[in-house]
Amino acid sequence: MLNDDYNFQWKDIGDIMEGRPNLGNQTHVAAYRLMQYTMRSVLNKRLGGKMAEELFFEAGKLAGEEFCKNILDTALDFYPFIAQLQQKLQELNIGILRIEETNLETMKFIFVLAEDLDCSGLPLTNETVCDYDEGFISGLFKAYTQKDFDVKEIDCWSSGERVCRFKISLKDE
């Protein structure tokens, strides 16, 4: 891990069933959030909040691309693909994906993540915190369409909206 050129690969997640025969695949959401927010704390202090936000977005994007390539069937048409995504996100207890708008002509979408792993139940801070999710969705769309997408979290639990709402649109060329 000291390698400066380390590239994430899906196999780096390892064989969980072999490694955790007793504890299995489940863990507490708290453990995930502990990891994320301590990391954010350290990064914010070292590199500043803005840079930390960018890094989380970037990591999320990488995760989204790899998730799409390794878990989803990209040969599916758009709507079946989305149905599959919904199912996988629920299966992995990441969150409940609800779609509010899809326009395949303008390539504009509004996705909502309820009970989001990153932020649901967080104390109110009046700011959106799901930078990693933004990157994740952007990565998914990139892997599925081979095009770059802008993803902006316009509502977040943390900002008092109870759900995280993402506005997705094709990046201007």
Binding site: R98, I99, E100, E101, T102, I110, V112, A114, D155, G160, E161, R162, V163, R165
Partner: peptide, 15 residues
């Protein structure tokens, strides 16, 4: 905030 969640759910239901 609860109404916002309802609003989102309704929008999803419409979709």
């Amino acid at each position: 905030s609860s109404f916002k969640e309802l609003h989102s759910n309704l929008r999803h239901l419409v979709w």
